[in-house]
Design a protein around this nucleic acid. Sequence first.
DNA 1: CTGTATGTGAACGATATCGTACGTAAAATA
DNA 2: TATTTTACGTACGATATCGTTCACATACAG
Lengths: 242, 242
Amino acid sequence: MKTELIGDFDTRNKILLALRPDAIAFLESRAVVKRLSQGQVLYKDGEFFTHAIFPHEGVICLMAQMQDGRSVEKASVGNEGFIGISYIFGGGKTISEPVVQVPGYASWISIKDLDEAIQNYPCVRDTMMRYAKSLTVQLMESVACNSLHKAEQRVSRWLLHAHDRVNTDTFQMTQEGISKVLGMRRATVSSACNALMNAGALKYTRGNVTITDRSILEGRSCECYERIRLAFANSSSHKARD
Amino acid sequence: MKTELIGDFDTRNKILLALRPDAIAFLESRAVVKRLSQGQVLYKDGEFFTHAIFPHEGVICLMAQMQDGRSVEKASVGNEGFIGISYIFGGGKTISEPVVQVPGYASWISIKDLDEAIQNYPCVRDTMMRYAKSLTVQLMESVACNSLHKAEQRVSRWLLHAHDRVNTDTFQMTQEGISKVLGMRRATVSSACNALMNAGALKYTRGNVTITDRSILEGRSCECYERIRLAFANSSSHKARD
DNA sequence: CTGTATGTGAACGATATCGTACGTAAAATA
DNA sequence: TATTTTACGTACGATATCGTTCACATACAG
């Protein structure tokens, strides 16, 4: 595996890990591992794909840009998924703007190599289709969630998803950042986080959040978290058959 | 084409119309045209698919059922799409509860016939994938829309989508129905509709809404309407190549 | 060490939507 | 025709979130 950095990096992306060994070997031989830094814009909306991006950890938010300048998250992607789903549906252009919110490493695979992999290893398309399904579940739940659920529930849900996608209980995410992805005021996020701190679910110190009690956070979240988590678990639980 | 009803029914479903003639002929020979009546639940969430359903007109909402008994629309489907997208992603179970909101006719095609069509006519899968992409755009826009936009904008958007999916300016949809699919109070919908009536966009009489001026409705809607409309237009504009 | 930028807490009134309830008129039913 | 049901308009106070601003403490840069 080529990498921009010194040392070896095991692929912890669940899409890649779910493939058959020969497909994994092929893709790892072509992959370049790069660091994703906070705030990095991976694609502009409508841009042509050059690479599919498979995060090892961290959180990438697919952002919507509104005409009035506001932006808000459409969906989020971690090591359970990859950036480039609309390429799989056919058509080379992005339909969102993926922005790194929690940094980490990712395997970048060129479209040319991806096409070759899809051609030679049927498990690649199958696995991506399973992810397409779980992403659809995420999107559907999010539509409902944004209609019905309150700020504190949505903040809890976001933090739980993020926690699932990092290896540590502490990670970088400002309240300002959460407010941007959830389309609410920082003051609203601040108030929700204080309630969650008082409940003992988390600690907050200048851009670093520490999850201290997941079960409390789950109790304060809405049912949408568990449904989405389950969809991701199902989509990466079984190895592809061919 | 077999039908439960007397007379012939041209297929006005855009997915079917975008296929190659031989694929259209095959599917029409297997399709059964049935009436979809208001309130009809086509599948329960998690049920096994028996048929893919291709609406000719009317609106089907993919509903989310929450634990507290509330329900809300995740996405809506008309003659630009079909019910059964998650079958295409692999796995035979539904991931939502499709409920008929505006009645119409639809072509029902059994899973067995659909499998045969996918096997024999590559354009079937390709066309469905294009729809998968535009449904993903719809879902993504809806996530953002539900985060950011106001009741009147969302009501306007829903009515515009519905108008696109029926052949007439007048169709059946109670304010109570709109409030259920948008997850807001009937009183909120009522107030929005009155504002839209006063603006000259529509008329409302006991369960029948008449769109009197689309351009006013478009002005009162949010940008999400046009983005979704455009995605649907793109996905059914070009004939499949094989 | 000092000044500046950043991240958070807290406050204000304003607004949107909520839950609920009641009245009215049209439609359906008896 | 008389009664009931349905669809809608409207009203009330309650609540959630909004937009904005200020204060303060930490981190960082010169």
